[in-house]
Computed example of a mutant assay.
Amino acid sequence: MDSTSALKFFGFTKQEAVVYTTLLRYGPQTGYEAAKNAGISRSNAYGALAGLCEKGAAMKASGDAKSYSAVPGKELIRNLRRQCDKTLDVLEKSLPDRQETEAPYLTVSGFENVVDKAQNVLDEAEHHIYVSLNSHEATLLHDALCRATARGLKTVIVSDTDPNVPECIYHFFPKDAGQFNIIADTSTVLTGSLDPELSSQCLYSKNTNLVRLMREAFVNELELIRQREEKSNE
């Protein structure tokens, strides 16, 4: 960035920036002289000089000659710095705080709708899946779980019966029917009930707090499983 570009950043026009540096380089000048030395038309030179005076970057001498002098560079820089500080102070005091919006909690109702949502969450996952569910729910979601492992996703399943999903990581743990939990990519959770005889309903969200809580609960469940396995092997 050269001096002309820097001055334009502070609101100077290109002609004003050129004429200002010309005044610094050649000293006090009339409009005619400034136009000649800057290589611009006389009308543009006079317009630039008027603009420089308004911006406090040039001063007009009294008398018949009507010559113009540049404000020293260091003085202009101090003035611009003060103006910037004032502007930043205004912004700091007047700009409203950004309102953070968390992802909502969405309720899905109806057996078929819950099954569809669970399958969609599994199908849309890109990295890893953690699932805790009863053998009944595992059967309903079996094909979607197989598709996940076929895509190479790390798939951890906690259930009361081996779901027979190739390449999954299976952990046995007693599970009551009617409640399932799915965490996909550590960004999406689906938790609820899935029973065709009762009112099936689930909660779907990408809310970071809920995802964190669900993940912690799943990690705790895996730790309980590990402890049970260690005791059974003693």
Score class of each variant (00 low, 15 high):
residue 2 D to K: 07
residue 2 D to M: 00
residue 2 D to E: 00
residue 2 D to W: 01
residue 3 S to P: 08
residue 3 S to N: 11
residue 3 S to Y: 05
residue 4 T to W: 00
residue 4 T to I: 14
residue 4 T to S: 11
residue 4 T to F: 02
residue 4 T to P: 01
residue 5 S to N: 14
residue 5 S to Q: 14
residue 5 S to I: 11
residue 5 S to V: 12
residue 6 A to K: 15
residue 6 A to Y: 13
residue 6 A to W: 13
residue 6 A to V: 15
residue 6 A to P: 02
residue 8 K to I: 03
residue 8 K to C: 04
residue 8 K to S: 01
residue 8 K to P: 00
residue 8 K to G: 01
residue 8 K to W: 01
residue 9 F to H: 10
residue 9 F to A: 10
residue 9 F to R: 14
residue 9 F to G: 03
residue 10 F to R: 15
residue 10 F to K: 12
residue 11 G to Q: 08
residue 11 G to Y: 12
residue 11 G to A: 05
residue 11 G to K: 09
residue 12 F to S: 09
residue 12 F to Y: 08
residue 12 F to A: 12
residue 13 T to C: 10
residue 13 T to H: 03
residue 13 T to E: 10
residue 13 T to A: 04
residue 14 K to S: 09
residue 14 K to W: 06
residue 15 Q to F: 04
residue 15 Q to H: 14
residue 15 Q to M: 02
residue 16 E to K: 06
residue 16 E to G: 01
residue 17 A to T: 00
residue 17 A to M: 00
residue 17 A to L: 01
residue 17 A to S: 06
residue 18 V to L: 13
residue 18 V to E: 09
residue 18 V to H: 05
residue 19 V to P: 00
residue 19 V to N: 00
residue 19 V to A: 04
residue 19 V to T: 01
residue 20 Y to M: 11
residue 21 T to L: 11
residue 21 T to N: 09
residue 21 T to G: 01
residue 22 T to V: 13
residue 22 T to Y: 05
residue 22 T to E: 02
residue 22 T to Q: 09
residue 22 T to L: 04
residue 23 L to C: 07
residue 23 L to F: 02
residue 24 L to N: 09
residue 24 L to F: 03
residue 26 Y to W: 15
residue 26 Y to A: 05
residue 26 Y to T: 07
residue 26 Y to H: 15
residue 27 G to L: 02
residue 27 G to K: 11
residue 27 G to T: 05
residue 27 G to I: 06
residue 28 P to T: 13
residue 28 P to D: 08
residue 28 P to A: 13
residue 28 P to L: 10
residue 28 P to G: 10
residue 28 P to Q: 12
residue 28 P to N: 10
residue 29 Q to N: 08
residue 29 Q to R: 09
residue 29 Q to W: 00
residue 30 T to R: 09
residue 30 T to A: 06
residue 30 T to I: 10
residue 31 G to D: 07
residue 31 G to Y: 03
residue 31 G to E: 01
residue 31 G to H: 04
residue 31 G to V: 13
residue 32 Y to L: 07
residue 32 Y to W: 04
residue 32 Y to E: 11
residue 32 Y to F: 06
residue 32 Y to P: 00
residue 32 Y to Q: 11
residue 32 Y to N: 07
residue 33 E to S: 14
residue 33 E to C: 09
residue 34 A to M: 10
residue 34 A to V: 04
residue 34 A to H: 04
residue 35 A to N: 06
residue 35 A to E: 11
residue 35 A to W: 02
residue 36 K to D: 12
residue 36 K to W: 11
residue 36 K to E: 14
residue 36 K to Y: 15
residue 37 N to R: 15
residue 37 N to P: 02
residue 38 A to R: 06
residue 39 G to P: 02
residue 39 G to R: 13
residue 39 G to F: 14
residue 39 G to W: 13
residue 40 I to Y: 02
residue 40 I to L: 10
residue 40 I to A: 03
residue 40 I to F: 06
residue 41 S to H: 08
residue 42 R to L: 12
residue 42 R to D: 04
residue 42 R to G: 03
residue 42 R to C: 03
residue 42 R to S: 09
residue 43 S to E: 10
residue 43 S to N: 13
residue 43 S to I: 14
